[in-house]
Amino acid sequence: MFDLYWAEDGGVPPGDRGLAYGDGLFETIAIMGGRASLLGYHLDRLVRDAGRLAIPVARPELEAACTRALERYSGLYPSLNWVLKLTLTRGSGGRGYRPEPRMKPSLIVSHSAFPSVPGPEGVVADFSRVPLTVNPLLAGIKSLNRLEQVMAARELQGDVFEVLMSNRDGHVVEGTRTNLFMLFEDVWLTPPASTLAVAGVMRRYVLDRLRIAGHEFREMPLTLDTLLGGSCQGLWLSNSVVGVVPVRNLAGHDLPVDQRLATIVGSPARLD
């Protein structure tokens, strides 16, 4: 059982460990036509990664909170399109890093307007100067610790939609808020989940769709030479709000643009 807080009502204790130490997780869920897109994927990840952090939470409770949020907020958006955010923390209690035993988690529920989504012509991306470090124990977890992404996002200037971050091995890993897919010699490539700061639910959905459609794909490191070389047949960014977006220009290099991945993926808005 968790304590439920509606963000607009306030009331989250100042000593909450999510605020004090980033001790928690969050999910950003697209609400489209009044339905929570990829909700099963989001709740799968939230429950799984809460378990990795030893934060006790039951999926039925989360499902009930989402239902209440849809009832509470959908009337605020005539288009029925908006964004739901769930922030799960270990809760409040104690001083210092060591959590107290049997703490009661907090779930903070908030909402926001649906952002503008890029068109099929593709977006401009660049490379970040901020290196990305991934602790193997936390790989893939969408935790509240996102300072590297915050620093990198400061580089978003002008028409640059996203900057891509590299790890200490020089491999291009992910964007500040997106995962990467590349078509290379008719094979779909994406960085391995073990190298990612965030393994997105849209990434999982895309891989599922590629598998169902019988397309060949590999999880392997992406290098600058691979991305900017002549064999690159396209680069796409993915997250659960914008879906999949082609990159038309990367660091001044024009890339091929088409809608083949969007066609394969279809509309995740129909999934719940």
Rank of each mutant, 00 (worst) to 15 (best):
T190F: 08
G200C: 08
T178E: 02
V130D: 03
E155I: 00
N249A: 11
D3C: 06
G18N: 04
G15N: 12
Q157N: 06
V187Y: 03
A113C: 11
R68N: 13
L255C: 04
S238W: 01
D208R: 15
G96S: 12
S143C: 11
D169A: 08
F127C: 04
W188R: 01
S166V: 00
R177P: 02
L107A: 04
A125C: 14
L4F: 08
E27C: 10
P13Q: 08
F181E: 07
P136C: 00
N135R: 10
A64I: 00
D126R: 11
V201N: 05
P99V: 04
E216H: 02
V241A: 12
P118C: 14
C66L: 11
E216N: 00
N81A: 14
L180M: 05
W82F: 14
G18Q: 03
N179A: 03
T89N: 09
L84T: 13
G34V: 11
L70D: 04
D126G: 05
L19C: 06
L164D: 00
C66G: 04
G230A: 11
L227Q: 05
V173A: 03
D225Y: 10
G96H: 11
G214M: 12
P268C: 12
G122I: 00
S112L: 10
T178G: 04
A30G: 15
N249K: 14
G170H: 00
N239M: 10
Q149N: 15
A251R: 11
V123D: 02
L137D: 10
G51Y: 06
A199L: 08
L210I: 06
D186H: 07
H111A: 15
V172W: 02
V244Y: 03
I108K: 02
V245Q: 07
W6L: 10
V245S: 05
S238L: 06
D225A: 14
W82Y: 15
V134L: 00
T195I: 04
A193R: 13
H111N: 15
V257N: 06
C232H: 05
I212T: 11
E162R: 07
Y73T: 11
G234N: 13
M165N: 08
P13L: 03
R72P: 12
I55D: 01
P118F: 13
P192M: 07
P131E: 08
W188K: 02
A199H: 09
D9R: 15
V242K: 13
M151S: 09
R48I: 00
I212D: 12
G119Y: 06
L144C: 13
L180A: 05
T67W: 04
T263P: 01
E121F: 01
Y5M: 10
R90G: 08
L19M: 11
I55R: 06
L147M: 11
G40Y: 05
N167C: 07
K142N: 13
G266T: 12
R98D: 08
R209I: 05
A125R: 03
S240T: 05
R102E: 09
T87K: 14
A125G: 03
R17Q: 05
A20W: 10
I31G: 13
V12S: 02
V47P: 02
A139P: 06
P256V: 01
D126K: 06
T87H: 06
R204K: 14
E71Y: 01
